[in-house]
Amino acid sequence: MTEQHSGFPRRDAEGRIRTLGDLLGVSLAGLVIGVLAVVLFDFAFASFGAGEFGQANGWLAVILPAWLYWEDFRAWEFGAARVVAALAAGAAGVTAGLVAAGLAAGLPPLLSGGLGAAGFTLAYAVVWFPGVRWLARRTG
């Protein structure tokens, strides 16, 4: 496989992310950026009197990691392997996110939702990356 470009994350010629470390690194960086953006917006709205700080939905932080996962999903050729892997990873991600958010239920929504988004981000990557490769080898 030839490398598509020399940026980060490293991708193969088809545009798929090459290593789990790259997928985790970029998705967690996106999560941190998302959390910071939600905190900034929540602080701005709270300073204008539109509610208390910490009441924004921390789940919004998952937007950038989800976008990355969508782009990696699209890079795989059409077939059942990518759909099954995405469904399994989505189920694992949502479950891990809901468990994390549930364990932090007494905390403000910004924090509990952020923890839920982190649980989703980690679980999705860990299931998607090896899952789609294993399924593609089995079906392709």
Rank of each mutant, 00 (worst) to 15 (best):
M1D: 13
T2Y: 14
T2R: 14
E3F: 14
E3R: 15
Q4C: 07
Q4S: 14
H5L: 07
F8W: 13
R10A: 15
R11L: 11
D12M: 11
A13P: 05
A13E: 15
E14C: 12
R16N: 06
R16L: 08
I17H: 02
L20F: 12
G21I: 14
D22E: 08
V26C: 05
V26R: 03
S27Q: 05
S27K: 03
G30F: 04
G30K: 02
L31W: 14
V32R: 12
V32Y: 09
V32T: 07
I33Q: 07
I33N: 07
L36T: 11
L36M: 09
A37D: 10
A37W: 07
V38P: 01
V39R: 06
V39L: 10
L40Y: 09
L40W: 13
L40V: 08
L40I: 08
F41Q: 10
F41N: 12
F41M: 12
F41H: 10
F43G: 09
F43M: 14
A44D: 06
A44I: 13
F45K: 09
F45W: 13
F45E: 14
S47W: 04
F48S: 11
G49S: 04
G51P: 06
G51K: 08
G54W: 05
A56N: 03
V62K: 00
I63W: 04
I63P: 05
L64D: 01
P65I: 03
P65M: 02
A66L: 05
A66G: 03
L68D: 00
Y69W: 01
W70V: 11
E71Y: 06
E71A: 09
R74T: 02
A75M: 01
W76Y: 11
F78W: 10
A81N: 00
A85H: 01
A85K: 00
A85I: 00
A85Y: 01
A86Y: 08
A86S: 15
L87N: 09
L87G: 11
A89W: 01
A92G: 02
G93K: 02
G93V: 01
A96C: 07
G97D: 07
L98E: 12
A100C: 07
A100Y: 03
A101V: 11
G102S: 05
A105P: 09
A105N: 14
G106H: 13
G106V: 13
L107S: 05
P109Y: 05
L110K: 11
S112V: 09
G113F: 06
L115A: 07
G116V: 02
A118Q: 08
T121V: 08
L122Q: 00
A123R: 01
A125G: 06
A125F: 01
V126C: 12
V127S: 09
W128N: 00
F129V: 03
P130F: 06
G131K: 06
G131E: 01
V132A: 02
V132S: 00
R133C: 03
A136C: 15
A136T: 09
R137A: 02
